[in-house]
Computed example of a mutant assay.
Amino acid sequence: MNHVKSLRSALIALVGLCVPSLVIAAELPDKQAELQVKPKSEDTVYLNPREMSAIPQGAFGDKVRQGYQLFVNTQQLRGKYVGNELNCSNCHMDAGRKPNASPLWAAYMAYPAYRKKNDKVNSFQDRIQGCFTYSMNGQAPANGSEELVALSAYSYWLAMSGLMDQYQVAGEVPELSDAELLKGGKREDFALPAAVKAAMNIDELAKLPGRGFPPIDKPELAYSPERGATVYQAHCQACHGDDGQGLAIAGVYSLPPLWGPQSFNWGAGMHRVNTAANFIYENMPFGKSIQLTNQQAWDVAAYINSKDRPQDPRFKGDVEALQKQYHNHQGYYGQSVNGGAVLGSQSYPVNPDKK
């Protein structure tokens, strides 16, 4: 047994001496791992939330509409809670409705849940706060804030309206208090219509088909930023630019930056090559999707994530220490690619002033 441990330690040390641009797509312990997502199935039936026009009038409906507005135009919170040029809908597509693009209706029913990323059980409110901190490179709104309530109300309404229609429950979506909205739907005391409760248990509701980004097979070849550059030029740069900085008209971004100072930071889930590959394969190029091979998706994800971006908010002055604690996964933080600077050593600011 000691011999095996010694051999394993020697191999790890040997790998640590190398800083390759080709990374083997192996299984790695992932401190930032998301909730497990099942592979797609051709005969899957997805939840279909009601149209926006079905949102009721009144105070509750106003919260739902506000949540929608914040979700598709998160830039209205720039300088307050947002520190880059992204909107929530850049990754959660079709305003958070699209299956296999991490839809809000599935996410709402998956929380509260334990996350390795912060080593605690997260409410839905906690999960949204994390999005502001990492994906939006900003600052998390305070617990119970108007913005968190609105985003939770919108997510809840999408989930409950879809469930009610799927199980032929007539009527308006039941209203919840602000405190209840912020918790999420994966709990025994969550109020469900009798027909829904009879059809699905709490674990099934937490794993609704279409949740997250469906995993794709590992690539046949080790993923490569060099090959990914070719894929990017052919399929991505027309929208995101040859410099990856997206498309802005009059200072408003219609297509998001993929790296650099205005993109997601080194703590966001999308900086992991596997997560980005899953998302890209399923949802890109925008408007077409499922156009790339598995290998191309992995390679272009490696290319995008081999570029520097805003610093991980958990950074305390030591890139190597942070890399060991939080980045032991398929990513490039703490590494040098093609002889460049160690990624993370010269990263852009977290939550910068837009000026």
Rank of each mutant, 00 (worst) to 15 (best):
P103G: 10
A95C: 01
A113N: 12
A107I: 15
S102L: 09
A113L: 09
D119P: 04
D119H: 14
P99S: 03
H92N: 05
P112C: 09
P103A: 12
A101H: 07
S123E: 12
N118T: 11
L104E: 03
Y114P: 02
Y114F: 14
D94K: 11
S123Q: 07
D119Q: 14
K116P: 06
G96I: 07
R115V: 05
A113E: 12
M109P: 02
Y108F: 12
P99L: 10
A110C: 05
P99M: 04
A101R: 02
Y108C: 02
Y111V: 10
A101D: 00
K98N: 07
Y111S: 08
W105C: 06
W105I: 06
M109Q: 00
R97E: 11
A110Y: 00
A107N: 10
V121Y: 06
A106K: 03
H92K: 04
Y111N: 02
P99R: 04
N122T: 08
Y108P: 00
K116W: 09
M109T: 03
W105T: 06
A110T: 13
D119L: 09
M93L: 13
D94F: 04
P99V: 09
V121M: 11
P103M: 09
P112E: 03
R115G: 01
K120V: 07
P99Q: 08
A107Y: 14
D94C: 02
Y111D: 05
W105F: 14
Y108I: 00
A106N: 03
S102M: 10
N122D: 15
A106I: 05
K120Q: 11
M109L: 02
L104F: 14
A107P: 06
A107F: 13
V121I: 15
A113R: 11
V121A: 07
K120P: 01
K117A: 12
K98M: 05
G96E: 03
P99I: 10
N100K: 11
D119R: 14
Y111I: 04
A106P: 01
L104Y: 15
Y108Q: 05
A107D: 13
K117L: 08
N118G: 02
K98P: 04
P112I: 10
V121T: 15
S123N: 09
M109V: 00
S123V: 08
S102R: 09
L104R: 07
R115D: 06
K120C: 03
Y111M: 12
N118Q: 05
S123W: 10
V121H: 07
Y108A: 01
Y108H: 07
A106Y: 01
N100R: 13
A110I: 11
A110M: 12
L104D: 02
G96L: 10
P99G: 04
W105E: 07
W105A: 06
D119S: 13
D94G: 01
K116M: 10
A110Q: 02
H92R: 04
H92P: 03
A110K: 12
